[in-house]
Simulated scan of single mutants.
Amino acid sequence: MAREDYRESLDRLRADVESMAETVLTQLRRALTALEDGDEALAQAVIDGDDVVNDRYLDLEGDCIDLLALQQPVASDLRFVAASFKILTDLERIGDLATNLAEYALADDEGAFSEIDISGIGEDVCEQVRAAVDAYVADDADACRTIAARDDEIDALCQHASEAVVRELIAREVDAWDVERLLDDVSRVLLTIRDVERIGDHAVNVAARTYYMVENDPALLY
């Protein structure tokens, strides 16, 4: 491969990772909307769209392997390809978690615990993912540090939301016949909060890999 073609391949990989991130973010926002609005059709569309994300992930993973095997990049190019490979995995997992959220939306036919502000936390998490992808595209190490630092805020929001669910469960007067249904609702809401938090963790992973790629510093990886 000529040197110009090699550089074009690296540039194309960065653009392709960004494009996959846009698809995943669309899936995530649609899943959160489905949860908020109880939109079953939208939730099903997210579930059906997961195959597209998975196929794109496998294609780009193959591109990374080809670059590593055939071009044997060194120094900053090696860090870039390796970071892109890892970031693609995080994006694919975010897509899987968006699918989980859509499945929870389908299961929630009565808006259980609707007062819990999952959509607000979800918007914060979407901003984290967006910022992490932008940092990757721009080689922005400063943004990576900001994203990692903000993760504690999102963790706290998720913890408070989970605690609010438990407090409401304790306070409710429930007919014995409704206990099983209520426990199903509680489990689903807690899983929803957990998965939103995990999406935030994947955004931090993207930022950490980008920081290592740019600065050759693993500080944010641990």
Rank of each mutant, 00 (worst) to 15 (best):
S76R: 12
V81S: 08
A82Q: 11
S84K: 07
F85I: 04
T89V: 13
T89Q: 10
E92L: 06
I94T: 11
A98R: 03
A98M: 04
T99F: 05
L101F: 07
A102C: 01
E103G: 01
D108T: 11
D108A: 06
D108M: 03
F113A: 07
F113K: 03
I116T: 12
G120K: 00
G120D: 02
I121F: 00
D124F: 01
Q128G: 11
V129R: 01
R130M: 05
A132G: 01
A135C: 03
D142Y: 01
T146K: 14
R150E: 15
I154G: 01
D155R: 08
L157E: 13
L157F: 03
S162Y: 04
A164L: 11
V165C: 09
V166K: 05
E168C: 00
A171F: 04
V174I: 15
D175N: 13
W177A: 15
W177M: 09
W177E: 15
D178Y: 04
E180T: 14
R181K: 13
R181A: 14
S187Y: 12
L191H: 05
R194E: 10
R198Q: 07
R198A: 05
I199K: 04
G200V: 08
D201V: 12
V206F: 08
A208N: 10
M213F: 06
E215F: 04
